[in-house]
């Protein structure tokens, strides 16, 4: 199993999530899991501009030349991707959201029915499991968690992944490690 952790914390040194990710990755490696961590703030990832070139001009390849393609390549090669981000104003950091938007080339423009709804067809044969590791804000309440979690469930369907777990940095690392093992 290949694991990829995307660290979407925009500001290093702020909060606990960087340290949490390091500790989790260490323990995963000790447990024999092949684990790579990408710190997104160190890369250049511009926002998707909605040009659809990745669908209709150069199928599967984004036209924007920056580091996003490298992330997409590692994402699609992984068995399980952990999307790690602080909640900022109740949702994933814009750094993380921009990165996820840039994965558009990984799916196909054609639509198909999945459980009574229209979604995009797969481009690749295999997609990773995606899980979410989040750091709460001081103001995070049950509503925020429910709203964000519902969106994550939808995102998993849309990027043709299965959803692994949704955990917070207040969960002991050991427990997240266990969740990784069962998925």
């Amino acid at each position: 199993m290949n694991y990829l952790i995307l660290n979407g914390n925009p500001s290093g040194g702020k909060g606990n999530i960087d340290r949490y990710i390091e500790s989790l990755a260490d323990k995963m490696r000790s447990a024999g899991h092949n684990t790579e961590v990408i710190v997104l703030r160190n890369l250049k990832i511009r926002p998707c501009i909605g040009c659809f070139n990745c669908w209709v001009k150069t199928p599967g390849t984004c036209s924007i030349r920056d580091n996003a393609a490298e992330v997409s390549r590692k994402y699609i090669a992984a068995d399980h991707v952990i999307i790690a981000s602080p909640l900022i104003m109740g949702f994933l950091s814009s750094l993380m959201k921009n990165t996820m938007d840039r994965n558009l080339p990984l799916v196909h423009p054609h639509l198909e029915e999945i459980d009574g709804e229209v979604h995009h067809k797969k481009r690749y044969d295999k997609y990773p499991i995606i899980s979410f590791l989040l750091e709460k804000e001081a103001c995070t309440d049950e509503d925020d968690i429910a709203i964000a979690s519902d969106i994550f469930r939808r995102e998993a369907i849309n990027v043709r992944a299965s959803l692994g777990f949704i955990h917070f940095t207040e969960t002991p690392v050991q427990e997240v490690l266990h969740a990784i093992d069962v998925h």
Binding site: P47, C48, G50, M89, F91, L92, S93, S94, L95, M96, K97, N98, T99, M100, D101, N103, L104, I151, R154, E155, N158, V159
Partner: peptide
Amino acid sequence: YVDAMPGSVKEFL
């Protein structure tokens, strides 16, 4: 965009 606001809109929020 991917079931939510585009990343650039999130930057503004």
